[in-house]
Amino acid sequence: MDSQNNNQPHEIEPIIEYEDCTDYVPSQEQVMYEREIQMRMRERRKAAERRRVNRNRTIALILLLAIIFIIVKSCSGGSGNKDESSSAADSSSVSSVSSDSSKVAEANINKTDSSKSSDSSTSGNVSTTGKKIEQINGMTFVDDVLIVNKTYSLPSDYDPGTSAAAQNAFDEMAAAAMNDGIYLFVNSGYRSYQEQETLYNNYAWQRGTDEADKVSSRPGHSEHQTGLTFDVNSTEFSFGDTQEAKWLAAHCAEYGFIIRYPQGKEDITGYSYEPWHIRYLGVEKAKEVADSGLCLEEYLGVTSDYKYAEDMNENTSTASSAVSSAADNTDTNYYADYNTDYNTDYNTDYNNYNTDYTDYTQY
C-alpha cells in the first residue's frame, strides 16, 4: 500500500499566493505618477522632433547661403555698373557729349578729334615704340589704350564703375570655360581710388612700402580703378598651377583680355607675376599683345616706375616726358615727395612696430 501511495503524483502547493487583480483600482498617487511618466515621454519625443526639424532647417539654410554666395560672386562684377550719364558727369570736362565719357573708360576705343578738347590733350608725342601718346583729362592713352601703372596714374575722382564691355566679355569667356569643365568667376573687379588707398595703406603698414609695392598699387595707379580689370578666382600664387589658370592664359585673348602681369616680366611691369589678373583691351588689341609675347609696357613702349610718375591732375606736360626722363635718369617728379613720405613713414612705423610689438601676431 505504501509503495502504491508513493507512486501517486503529489499536488504541488503554490508557494506564492496569487490574488485576483481584475478589480484592482490604482490609487490617485499612482495615477498621477503614470500620467507624469507619459507626459515626460511625450515631451522627449517632441524635443527630439524639434531637434530633427531644426537640424534639417540649418542644413537647408547653409546650402541656400552657399548657392547665394556663388551667384553673388559670379555676378559681382556686373553689380557695380553705373548709369552712363552719371559716369559722364563725373569724368567729363573734356567733352559736352555724355557718350565720350564712357569711351574714355574703354581701353580700346577709337577716339576721334571731337572727343578731345584743346586744353586737355596733347599731340605729336610718341613712345619708344613709336606709338602715339595722348593725355585726356589727366589720363594717358598710348595707341588708344588707357595705360595705368606705376608711371601713369588716374585722377582721384575718376569713378567709371565696371565697364559693361569688359563684364560682357568676361561673362562670355566664363560660359565658354564652363563648357570645358572650367569654372571662372570674378574675385575682385572695379575698385575706387579710396578703396585702393585703404588697401595699399594696409599692405604698407604690415610689410613696409618696398614689399607692398610688389603686390599692390598705390592709390591712383591701380588698373582696378579703370573698371577694365578683374582678379579671377583666387589671388593666391598657387592659382598659377591650377587648370583654371592654364585655361585662362590660353584663351583669355580670344575674349579681349590679357594676363596683365606675366611671369618673367616683373622688372618691366613693376609687379609680381599675377596669373589671376586680367585686363580688357578688346579682342583685336588683346590678340596683338598676346601674339607678340610682350607685356603691355613693352608693347606700348612705356615705363612702370613710381620715380617717373607725374601728377596728371595738375601737370599737363606731355606723357612722353616720363619716357625721356627715364632715359635721362632724372629724379625731379611729382612722386619724389610721395615716395619719401610713404617710405619714411610706413617703413619706420613698420620697423618700430616689429621692435616694440614682437608678439603682435598672437593678436
Rank of each mutant, 00 (worst) to 15 (best):
W205I: 03
Y261G: 05
E13H: 04
I70L: 12
E13V: 08
A47R: 15
D231P: 11
S74A: 13
M178A: 14
K307H: 08
E223I: 13
N201L: 03
L294M: 11
V97F: 09
A253V: 03
G240V: 01
S92G: 00
Y308T: 09
F170K: 08
N351P: 05
I16A: 11
H224F: 08
Y299D: 04
D341M: 14
L184A: 05
N233M: 08
Q167I: 04
D337P: 02
P26I: 08
S163C: 00
T162G: 03
D157G: 10
E274H: 06
V94L: 10
M41C: 07
D241N: 10
N149P: 10
T361A: 06
S91I: 09
N54S: 14
R55K: 15
K307L: 05
S317G: 12
L65G: 01
R52L: 15
S188N: 08
V215F: 09
A309S: 13
Q8S: 07
G161F: 03
I16H: 14
A204Y: 09
E43R: 15
A212C: 06
E254Q: 09
A105F: 01
E310N: 07
E314D: 11
N81H: 05
G208V: 01
D83G: 06
S102Y: 10
A212I: 04
D83F: 12
S93K: 03
T316Q: 01
P275I: 02
V186R: 08
T112I: 02
K116G: 00
T128L: 05
Y346N: 05
G240N: 14
R260P: 02
N5A: 13
V25E: 11
A48I: 11
G189C: 11
A164N: 08
K131P: 00
Y346K: 10
D267Q: 09
R42S: 15
S102L: 04
K265F: 03
D2R: 06
T58D: 15
P14Y: 01
E244R: 03
Q135L: 00
Q135K: 07
K287L: 00
S99H: 06
G130P: 01
E310C: 05
P160S: 03
E49M: 15
G220T: 10
S95W: 01
S99W: 01
G293K: 08
E134N: 12
T198Y: 14
S118N: 07
S324D: 13
D159H: 14
D213L: 09
S101R: 00
S115A: 10
T330S: 15
T242P: 04
G264Q: 03
T318Q: 07
A336P: 02
P26C: 07
Y33K: 05
V232E: 09
S74V: 05
N125I: 00
R35A: 13
L281H: 01
G270V: 06
G208A: 04
S325T: 01
G161L: 03
K131E: 04
P26L: 07
A326H: 09
Q196S: 15
E17T: 12
R51I: 12
G208W: 06
D2S: 10
T330I: 11
T344I: 13
Y152S: 11
K214C: 08
